[in-house]
């Protein structure tokens, strides 16, 4: 046993020290989550590239099916604009503009839902399914999981909108909006990669 009373330090009072430096913890969590989702899509993309390389020269939708490039381009425009509206929403709440936040988040949600409806409409007119050979499988798996992530983002936006309507956000306290916006941008980036890979590079 020690003889002298060891020196101990009181825990620091709140609001100082650990939490203030660097990114807020919920944002750190969201960024890490997005890192894991990037790897998830990475696995799916790896499958796509592997299949495409193995079928070089014969990589196209099965008989009777065709990719709808114009519709996909419209969907891309919708999703990219929704990222802009989302960011305007974040800028709004950063300066304390409650009405602006509600408007931009609402608009982002509308665009997101439009994207999903457009994706479903595309699926209904494609002429091939997930079980129609390797092209169909990779196409539906990639776009389907992306759509599922858009759906998750839409759920998040709905919650943000509900909380914004109740006035729960302020300049000092809106980390949830920032987190959802980062997720939404991620979903947009994945779509751009998908669109480029599937529709442009073919």
């Amino acid at each position: 046993m020690t003889t002298a009373e060891p020196q101990r330090v009181e825990l620091p009072p709140p609001g100082r020290g650990r939490h203030e430096a660097g990114l807020p913890t919920p944002l750190v969590g969201m960024l890490l989550f997005i890192a894991s989702e990037v790897m998830f899509f990475g696995g799916l993309f790896a499958a796509y590239f592997n299949a495409r390389a193995a079928h070089a020269g014969a990589w196209h939708p099965p008989e009777g099916g065709e990719l709808d490039m114009p519709l996909a381009a419209v969907l891309t425009a919708i999703l990219v604009s929704s990222s802009f509206t989302m960011q305007f929403g974040v800028a709004a709440i950063r300066r304390g503009d409650q009405r602006g936040l509600r408007m931009w988040v609402g608009l982002t949600l509308v665009l997101g839902v439009l994207f999903l409806l457009g994706q479903l409409y595309d699926y209904s007119r494609l002429g091939f399914g997930i079980g129609d050979g390797i092209f169909g499988t990779t196409f539906y798996t990639l776009t389907g999981f992306h759509g599922a992530h858009v759906f998750g983002g839409a759920v998040g936006l709905t919650i943000m909108l509900a909380r914004a309507l109740q006035g729960q956000f302020s300049t000092a306290n809106h980390v949830a909006v920032e987190a959802v916006s980062i997720y939404w941008h991620f979903v947009d980036v994945v779509w751009i990669a998908l669109f480029t890979t599937i529709y442009i590079l073919r």
Binding site: L32, A35, S36, E37, M39, F40, G42, G43, A46, A47
Partner: peptide
């Protein structure tokens, strides 16, 4: 964080 999601995809 980086490896398990690939497994999930598989």
């Amino acid at each position: 964080l980086l490896a398990t999601p690939v497994f999930t995809a598989g």
